[in-house]
Design a protein around this nucleic acid. Structure first.
Lengths: 334, 334
DNA sequence: ACGTAAGGGGTAAACGTTTACCCAATCTGC
DNA sequence: GCAGATTGGGTAAACGTTTACCCCTTACGT
């Protein structure tokens, strides 16, 4: 059985308080006793019990993070960036996947909050459906929303300006002469789906482009991109451009176009959103809206730390401008 | 502040033991008191404290999982499958990324084990370097290795038969007439790198194919695939086939070949390993060795449960045969 | 030399839950 | 009617750590 602080105390011939003081450095202890305690701990292979410490201190040195779809490379990229920013602060990141399901999301939230994570970073599954469980726990732990957010829910958020990003994609294809532009995205469940949709319609109106193409809203998955491409191809004629709500959809669209001998960008321009690492590797390499992972992660951790330091800190919403990355799928070079 | 079991007891006019008995159903309590306790718990919004429960019970209802590179879609796919098998068992999965770094891996292992996860599922970073930290904790928690394993370390493992898999890829390209076959994989740090390398050489010898091509061993990353493709293209002449150690490398190779007008499969055959979801979406769609995620996950959870049930259970090594998926990159159809 | 302050070590309570043990009431069998 | 068994509720210890409080010793200033 693993040694406890009591065993170390007995071995060193001191009290458990002395052992605790030595090992945490919380108060001075005489050098002689420090030496004995350290030696005893070493000899017994003592490691403090994080569960007991959490109960006593009320903190765990962990941050929970929940993403809605871990198989979408965009979310692991955000997780990697968050880890880099959390690393060096002595805190551990515990990651959970909510599988695009608000019931599973609630389970994950309660699992993390119930284990007293010091903060929760969440990409909410649904702009409306995620509210109930987050309202339930926001008084118990600091929460920061990343990328997506819950509507009418007062919590910190950092993400890109989705409207601006999709607007940049529309302006880009319009600047290349595109008149008929089709939008392929996800149903309006999440805030990013909603905002990208709003951004698309606003940009089209601003540019005076027709909005009469059917809206192709499915999931943020490559499979849906393929299905959407088939729907586009069964239309009367090919649009000038396909603006996609994320890179996965775009990769699916590209693949299906390629399979059916539709040339990109010669026959139709295609754009994505996110700049996942396969965007550059797609064929042709995908023009996309890059989300600045490092900056999102840095702001996220900063918001969380501010919230942890002072629960009454005024709520912050940080929208970061994304950037257009022009690649071959709209005629750019590699 | 959130209610504790003491508050509920006070509110219901019973003892904390009674409240605990009612809420856990651990012993009979009169219907009248059950009603009062449940009503009090509801009224106070009581949720049990998982930290206190963990300290008292010594279990946490959590499983920790560590993957070496969360940005590689293969690992999220495994995580998703493990979650599906764990779901419904009332246990939560806490995921950590070890960033291909054994020091970070050790931090993650200690973070999870220190918080008394009931079991640990790990894809070890290094066949040798990961041993020290796993030996340190294997007496404290059940461990199952997935995909990769640590050499000379007695712990349960489930993965595909890497030698068999790469051998199938070599046999496949050879059956299409390939004589000069180049192997692009990772340096021999992980067991999968080692086994795939061994499998490649063994298959080449078995088929009487020349092994004099330079070995291109870097990382399991698409970036390395691109670099390797450049190295191949600066050689005297193009090989007949490029067999890659994983899909990421293969996707990188495909991209660079495409960029330099090398036609796949016309000019050179390319294969991968893993069957990540971008393998089918690559251009051309990638011939690969499919790892059966669901089966790997199911066996993994079964091994963990067996280990949890009886720490003395004989160690098991389960190698599952992968399957060849022929796509356009070796002349197959979509 | 004395009074006050500072340092440092030990005891025990606290964190929140679970459950062993004890005790009282009730039930059952003879 | 009584003895023994059963049921069920309460108390308190346990889990492992931290730290408030207490007390003793030593040091310093007058």
């Amino acid at each position: 059985m693993t040694a406890t602080i009591r065993d170390v105390a007995r071995h060193a011939g001191v009290s458990v308080a002395t052992v605790s003081r030595v090992l945490t450095g919380s108060r001075t202890v005489s050098p002689e006793l420090v030496e004995r305690v350290n030696e005893a701990a070493r000899a017994l292979g003592y490691r403090h019990n994080a569960v007991a410490r959490a109960l006593r201190r009320g903190t765990t040195n962990t941050v929970g993070m929940i993403v809605p779809e871990i198989g979408n490379p965009f979310f692991p990229a955000i997780v990697e960036a968050v880890e880099r920013h959390l690393g060096g602060t002595g805190r551990d990141l515990f990651l959970c996947d909510s599988q695009q399901d608000i019931a599973i999301e609630r389970q994950r939230v309660l699992a993390l909050v119930g284990r007293q994570v010091d903060g929760l970073i969440i990409v909410p599954v649904s702009a409306t459906g995620s509210r109930a469980c987050l309202e339930e726990v926001i008084t118990r732990t600091p929460i920061v929303q990343v990328d997506r957010y819950v509507e009418d829910f007062p919590a910190d958020w950092v993400g890109v300006d989705d409207e601006l990003g999709i607007g940049a994609a529309v302006e880009h294809v319009a600047s290349l002469g595109a008149k008929r532009v089709v939008f392929v995205s996800a149903t309006l469940d999440s805030s990013s789906a909603v905002q990208r949709h709003v951004g698309f319609e606003r940009a089209m109106r601003k540019l005076g482009l027709p909005l009469d193409e059917p809206q192709l809203l499915g999931t943020f998955r490559a499979e849906w991109g393929r299905v959407a491409a088939i729907k586009i191809l069964t239309g009367a004629s090919l649009p000038d451009a396909v603006v996609c709500g994320n890179d996965e959809i775009a990769v699916g669209v590209l693949g299906e176009f390629r399979r059916r001998q539709v040339r990109v960008p010669e026959d139709v321009l295609v754009t994505g959103f996110d700049d996942i690492r396969f965007a550059a590797l797609a064929d042709p390499p995908l023009t996309t809206i890059r989300q600045p992972h490092e900056q999102l992660a840095a702001e996220c951790i900063r918001l969380l730390d501010a919230r942890m330091a002072d629960a009454g800190t005024p709520m912050q919403r940080i929208a970061i401008a994304p950037s257009l990355v022009v690649r071959e799928s709209t005629g750019g070079t590699s």
